[in-house]
Amino acid sequence: MTITAIKETVWPAQEVVEDLSELRKNAPLTHVLTNIVVTNWTANVLLAAGASPAMVIAEEEAPGFAAIASGVLINLGTINSFDAKAIKAAAISANKSGTPWVLDPVAVGPLPYRTEIAIELLNYKPTVIRGNASEILALAGASSGGKGVDSTAKSTEAIEVAQELSLRTGAVVAISGEVDYITNGKEVIAVPGGHILMTKVTGVGCSLGALIASFLGIQKDPLRAAISASAVFAVTGERAALASRGTGSFAVAFLDELTVLKS
């Protein structure tokens, strides 16, 4: 497949500003099934953005909650056999009820257990798949994955595979990296920006997946929802870096800048 001509979106694109305003107006209920390392951070990020997070993980509750939520995130960061049951139940429920959901296939490729789970979850039609370049390549069967949760491939290396994965699954695919690339298989949108400190604070990428799920709650076009979330994160990261001295103050500044972000 030939890579489609790439368009670029940067803050404050009108559509992104409108989507953020709509998110804050409606506070979409976002069901987050994520890893234990980032749960508190992710909840705070969604609150700062204006969404309403709910970290419901029990197998007995997950499917019912996925059916009533505005959007769902499924993140495989610290997957275990107990969480796998709840995650599968939530994905099935979201697919059946029409709730848009995001698959974040953390560290797929080198680890067979989570890779098998991620591939199975594709059967339940994720609305958006978000990962770094190595994760996207591995999920598509084009490589063996990265170094743990870190990518060993540049985001540009995964664009063509992401297009093919999007067309095959029906999901928008969002590749996170120095520049984010988001595709529905036909269009490819670049979202530049951000800062290297975003890779030094645990959970920034994982919380981006959650924010995409929140935007899906107010924006019916999944391509636009993923673009808006990425653009919001990019400008927030840039502004937080200017206001911080290192990783600790950056984390606080990131939440502060996201809270006050308007234009």
Rank of each mutant, 00 (worst) to 15 (best):
T30R: 00
T30W: 10
H31R: 10
H31N: 05
H31A: 07
H31K: 11
L33A: 06
T34V: 03
T34I: 01
N35F: 12
N35G: 15
I36F: 15
V37H: 08
V38Q: 04
T39H: 14
T39F: 07
W41D: 11
T42Q: 09
A43F: 08
A43P: 06
A43R: 02
N44F: 15
N44G: 13
V45T: 12
V45H: 14
L46Y: 10
L47Q: 14
L47Y: 09
L47S: 13
L47W: 14
A48M: 13
A48Y: 07
A48V: 13
A48L: 11
A49D: 13
S52G: 12
P53T: 13
M55T: 00
M55V: 07
A58T: 12
E59Q: 13
E59Y: 07
E59I: 08
E61H: 11
A62P: 05
P63C: 11
P63T: 05
G64V: 00
F65W: 05
F65Y: 13
A66L: 09
A67M: 09
I68K: 12
A69K: 09
A69G: 06
G71Y: 03
G71A: 08
G71V: 00
G71H: 04
V72D: 04
L73Q: 02
I74D: 01
I74C: 06
N75F: 05
L76D: 05
G77R: 08
T78H: 01
N80L: 07
N80E: 11
F82W: 14
D83A: 03
D83Q: 12
D83K: 04
A84P: 00
A84V: 11
K85I: 03
K85D: 00
A86P: 00
A86E: 00
I87T: 01
A89G: 13
A90S: 10
A91D: 00
I92C: 01
I92S: 04
A94G: 04
N95C: 14
K96V: 14
G98I: 06
G98T: 09
G98E: 07
G98R: 00
P100R: 00
P100I: 05
W101F: 15
V102G: 07
D104P: 09
D104S: 05
D104T: 10
P105Y: 01
P105G: 08
V106A: 04
V106F: 05
V106R: 06
A107W: 03
V108T: 06
G109A: 15
G109W: 03
G109K: 04
P110M: 11
P110C: 07
P112G: 08
Y113I: 09
Y113G: 08
